[in-house]
Design a protein around this nucleic acid. Structure first.
Lengths: 187, 187
DNA sequence: ATATTTGTAGAGTGATCAGTCAATCAAATT
DNA sequence: AATTTGATTGACTGATCACTCTACAAATAT
């Protein structure tokens, strides 16, 4: 495993459990099994590290959830694919989604990083847009649909992390998806 | 204005813009116009301060949104009251809702505080519960409804803070509430 | 082969910060 | 009037931390 990835791994775990300024860079280096200086060789500053980590995880989330979506025909099924893939990723990486939620609107994430993230999430925006054009998705500002959908999805993930048995209850999961999709779809 | 409140006010502003460990207690004291020692007279530690602040704001939010709700008869209107009152509070205190969102799942908020918050939110839980018994609200785990509803509400608030002109567009706000209530209500 | 760049290490440092402390002041209680 | 209790102050400190710097090793280019 690359040293950079070891640093990312250590930082993810420590930042989520102890906070950003709550974890010394020395501890990150120690946990990652690298020297203090190595950390600063790869990242100019501590802020640089958390910004890269955040971008990295957002990228991973989007890639994991959209990989293979082009094979799916119907729009509803595409949304279901996205929805279930994201949940699947979150359930296997609870700490990652936890980190994202925790630092999404934190002052450590620069506007520059936010802009990069905005580019990444365009896949989602485009899907919503095409849904609106097809009159399958409600004609509501895309931004609003996006925020509401992601927030609701995060809520569902939070619930599933606390009640993991529900994740294997397919009847429940079906109902849960409809709860999600009913907001978006035209009546 | 009480010194404690001045400290709360300063801490709210600084914590949201610079992060918890990112703001020195000395700066909080200076901004609040009190001496360094005074801060520690009222709060045992810096963590104690942020926990109290968090609890304080959660309380304020719930009180503001539920105050006067007993006068309303229909369940749907009660939800609409709660929904619009919360949004109204958030729009006049964007920093407060921003702080809540930012520290909701941060490691600085102790489980003890979370438990206190759980007590506060019982008003909401009871309302949902009675709605389920009346068969006006979907028969879904109360926890799940609660999480989804609050997350969605937070999403809406985020959108409105960015697009404040929509807040005064009553047609939009009507549509927005229905977007919220349609998830909850039985078909 | 030699030069140059890149990776890795860890001791060292100047600055910063949470919390203490001793002193004074104000108000309440006896 | 005396005494206790609580409020307020700000200088001080021991510890901690982000980042630097120098040195060496490995890889890559010339």
């Amino acid at each position: 495993m690359e040293k950079v990835d070891k640093i990312f791994e250590a930082a993810l775990s420590l930042f989520t459990t102890k906070g950003f300024h709550g974890t010394p860079t020395s501890e990150i280096a120690k946990t990652a099994g690298v020297a203090n200086g190595t950390l600063f060789h790869y990242f100019k500053t501590k802020e640089d590290l958390i910004n890269n980590l955040y971008l990295n995880l957002k990228n991973e989330m989007v890639e994991e959830s959209t990989n293979g979506i082009e094979k799916i025909e119907s729009l509803k099924l595409k949304f279901e694919y996205l929805w279930s893939k994201t949940i699947q990723w979150a359930m296997t990486n609870p700490q990652k989604i936890f980190f994202i939620q925790q630092y999404m609107y934190s002052p450590y994430i620069t506007t520059n990083t936010q802009e990069e993230v905005d580019k990444i999430k365009e896949v989602y925006i485009n899907l919503i847009q095409s849904g609106i054009e097809n009159e399958e998705i409600k004609e509501i500002p895309v931004d609003l649909i996006y925020i509401i959908a992601t927030q609701q999805l995060f809520g569902m993930i939070q619930y599933l992390v606390i009640n993991p048995e529900k994740y294997h209850d397919s009847e429940f999961m079906n109902l849960a998806f409809n709860l999600f999709y009913d907001i978006l779809k035209t009546n």
